[in-house]
Structure formats: C-alpha cells, structure tokens
Amino acid sequence: MLLLRLLWQVPIGLIILVIILFSMSGYAISFNSRRTKDVAYVPATSPDFNAERHLLDIYTPRSKSATARPVVVFIHGGAWNSGSKNIYFIIGRRLAKQGVVAVVINYRLAPAVEVPAMADDCARAVLWTSQHIAEYGGDPNRIFVMGHSAGGGLAALVATDDQLFAKFGSAKNPIKGAILDDPGGLDMFDYLSKMQYPGDDSYLVPFGKKPDVWHAVSPIYYLRTDSPPVLMYAGEKTYPGIASSTRRFNERLQALGIKHEFTVLSGKEHIPMVTQLFWKNNIIYRDLLKFVGAKS
C-alpha cells in the first residue's frame, strides 16, 4: 500500500507549516516558560559526539513550585531519517506552561547511523536528564518519555529495554512511564519480515538488513510484568502498519497486566495526532498531566 511507503516522511513540511501558522501562539505561551537551548547531553570529548544531534532543549515553568516538578522527555518523529527538536518547541512550551519540565531532544539519524545508535542516543539523553534535571526544578525520580511516530517507537524502546542504560553504566532504567502518540516501529521484526508493501525496502536504511537487529529494536519484545505504565494513542485513520502494531502492543500490555490506557482518537490521521499537541486542551495533555502528576 502506497500510504505505508509515505509513512512518517512527507508530513514534516506540513508540521512546519502548522508551526509557522501558530507562531503567535508560541510567542504568547513563551511568557509562561523558560527555554534553555542546545545543551549537549554527550560529552564533546566522546568519539561519536555530534555537535548538532547530541543536543537537547529544556523548558521550565516560570512559576515557582515548592516541590520538584515531573519531567517529560519528548522524542521527535520523522521516519528515523529526519526531524529536529526545533520543530517541536511549542510542545515544550505547552508542557512547561502546564507544570511540567519538558526536555525536547535531537538524536542522530539515518543514513549516518541505524536505529540501535538512535536508541543509544535517546537513552543517553534520558540519563543526562536524570543526572541534571534537578538543576532546572525537575524531579529525577519522575522522568517520563514521550514521542510521536518514529519517536514514539524510540520512547517505547528506551522505556522497556533496560540494557540500553546498563551499557552506559546505569544500574536501573530511570523512566517511570511512557506516552506514545501514534507510535511507529513497535514491532519492526514482524513488519520487515513480511515486506508486504511497495517501498518497504526503504526502511532497511535505518534498520539494516539483519532480522536479529529488527527484533532487538522492537519494543514489543521487551514488555514484561514490571514494565512502566503506558499511555498510548492511535488515530482512527492512521497508517495500517501503526494501527496493527498498536493493537498488538495493547494486547501484550493487557496479557502481562501492565498498567496502561489505549485510546483510538476518532477521525484522526497520523499527522494530526502530533499537531493537536499545539493546543493545550487536547485529550493527550489532559491524560498526560494526570499520568505524570503535574500541578500547574
């Protein structure tokens, strides 16, 4: 199906257009938050340091709080080969305005690296956050990950694969929960093993050609009874691959008794699932604020 070939690729321009249209809204909400931009989460002395992709932005509420605030690390989408934290500044602002310390990250992209390295980057960003977010008023014991599309798959992966943190010297996974917005890549082993649709071979660039790697970066295989809770959303009119994998992911969450909620949003296509986050009163924010225990 041609739609699957276009998955996560064409809509980046549409997202940028919507952001431009809502720039005035972004300026308005900026008065309620502070942005600390382009913080390196990988040491510049590291052999693989990338001066553009190993950066994150931190959004903090301007209002005072007697207690440390919950933290949401947002991972952008873009088919594992495009996207930038700079596109999603409104999400950072919206979260901060509603009492959350938001961390919006970059990570390396294909074809420069494959998905395992992207997952490493996301884990390193979360680790940096756990070590430094108290300096920005965030609670290192309440770190949640969030992502849309390819970023949703990466968020699910870092939330469930503890070995991603062990390889960087962390005794435990610091993530307390995941918010998955129309996530892609939940089971790329199944998807790439079938190769059902024209253009599926394009995903061999970010995922490589080895089935064991496809399996190793598919979050569905890491779910266990003690996995952190999940909020997951899918658009009623999203791409068939996402519709199928989110249903199966939900079934696995149910079978293991993992605390979760799965909501299919009526009439929503893939891109509106993220552009709705430019407005503060959507269902995802309402659920998220309760999920993380935010107080404005």
Rank of each mutant, 00 (worst) to 15 (best):
L4C: 14
K97H: 08
R34L: 07
K209Q: 08
H215T: 08
G177C: 09
A102E: 06
L14I: 13
A234R: 04
K64A: 15
V100R: 03
L127R: 15
P228S: 03
S63Y: 11
D161Q: 09
L17D: 00
L14H: 13
I283K: 06
G77E: 04
A178D: 12
R286D: 06
L56I: 04
R252L: 03
S296F: 07
T129M: 02
S130E: 05
L192Q: 04
N32T: 11
L277G: 00
S82F: 12
D162L: 03
Q98F: 11
S33N: 12
R62Y: 03
A123V: 02
M146G: 02
A119V: 09
I271H: 08
V145K: 05
D120L: 10
G267H: 05
Q196F: 10
Q131N: 14
A134E: 14
I258P: 15
W214I: 00
I90H: 09
P183K: 07
A234V: 04
S170D: 12
D139F: 01
W128R: 01
L14M: 15
Y136A: 04
S149K: 04
Q196I: 11
L289M: 04
A216N: 13
L4V: 10
Y222M: 06
P229C: 02
N86V: 01
V213T: 12
S23E: 09
G153Y: 01
D121V: 11
Y191H: 07
I143F: 10
I220P: 14
Y88A: 10
M1Q: 13
T263A: 04
R224Y: 06
A40C: 15
F291G: 00
L204S: 02
S84L: 08
V292T: 03
R124P: 00
W80Y: 15
A123T: 02
N86G: 00
H132Q: 13
K172R: 09
H76K: 13
T275N: 06
G26T: 11
I15N: 05
Y239D: 05
N281G: 09
K210C: 12
F278A: 10
F31N: 14
A51T: 14
D200A: 11
S202E: 08
L192K: 11
R93I: 05
N173H: 03
V73Q: 04
I283P: 00
L253A: 11
A117P: 02
E52C: 12
L265S: 08
V42F: 12
N173W: 01
K194V: 10
A150D: 03
F89Y: 12
I12T: 06
H76D: 05
V18Y: 12
I105K: 06
K268E: 12
N86F: 06
Q254V: 15
D181P: 00
G147A: 07
